[in-house]
């Protein structure tokens, strides 16, 4: 009988701890599929963040390092500079990458470190129970913005791809989503490209994945995916923001 579906080899058998309806599982799978497709699992080293994906080191079958909050790009820089022929990726959330770790993110990008960054943007701090994130939308109600994010006092959300694409150095900056089949298929392609870029020695490649958090958004999984479509994507347009190879274009 032909096998039509199986778990990627780059994932372990550990059971994921993510909430029902959370799209981290899909994104883990897409990363693992990219590693499988390129056949690089045995020479890949991943860096896990602090946030919901803190235990990603249990789920990826390659060697893994757990970083301090926001420092994954610096840790990945160290690993890559030590072992330039290894494939090094970070997997980070919005608080980790765009708040506490913004300096590390921008500087790894501007050095064009030959690493792959998977940036999961769900507009909220999930693990600590739903606080305002640097990417929370204007008016968004969270535990620490109970009357809605007031841009006069809490500032505006940060559009990471738009910002990083202003830098001269980085190779590839793109934003995808995983809220429907079409978007998942595209995300798979883009994530694989971000890893292939590294294999080919091209440099810093970041993929922002617009994700959902039904638990802390207070929505059913299905409603959360709708919220991604109607609220998140209009604020965070999908597409390729920078591609030095000239292959991709903004959708």
């Amino acid at each position: 009988m032909a096998i039509v579906f199986e778990k990627p080899k780059a994932l372990t058998d550990a059971e994921l701890h993510y909430c029902p309806g959370c799209t981290h599982g899909i994104i883990h799978r897409l990363v693992a599929e990219a590693i499988d497709a390129l056949g690089v699992e045995g020479r890949t080293i991943g860096v896990a963040p602090v946030g919901c994906a803190v235990m990603a080191y249990n789920y990826f079958a390659c060697d893994m390092v757990e970083a301090a909050h926001g420092r994954a790009p610096a840790v990945a820089t160290g690993i890559k500079r030590s072992l330039p022929d290894r494939i090094v990726f970070t997997y980070q959330g919005d608080g980790d990458l765009a708040s506490i770790g913004m300096a590390e993110t921008v500087h790894a990008a501007t050095r064009n470190e030959n690493i792959t960054v998977i940036f999961v943007n769900n507009a909220i701090y999930g693990m600590t129970g739903g606080q305002m994130a640097p990417t929370s939308l204007p008016g968004q109600v969270t535990q620490t913005s109970p009357y809605g994010r007031d841009v006069k006092t809490a500032g505006y959300p940060i559009r990471v791809c738009e910002m990083l694409s202003q830098l001269d150095a980085p190779e590839f900056i793109a934003r995808v989503a995983v809220n429907n089949v079409k978007n998942v298929k595209n995300a798979k392609k883009v994530i694989e490209k971000a890893f292939r870029n590294q294999v080919e020695g091209k440099g810093f490649s970041l993929v922002e994945v617009v994700s959902s958090c039904p638990t802390n958004w207070g929505l059913t999984p299905q409603k959360a995916l709708e919220w991604v479509e109607t609220k998140m994507i209009p604020y965070y347009p999908l597409g390729v923001y920078k591609d030095k190879s000239g292959e991709g274009n903004k959708e």
Binding site: I45, V47, V65, A67, A68, R71, A74, V75, A76, T77, G78, I79, K80, R81, S82, L83, A103, E104, H107
Partner: peptide, 15 residues
């Protein structure tokens, strides 16, 4: 920053 520097050290030490 010094923060980034020590975390790069952490990365190399991991290897």
């Amino acid at each position: 920053s010094e923060v980034a520097a020590i975390n790069m050290v952490y990365g190399v030490a991991s290897t």
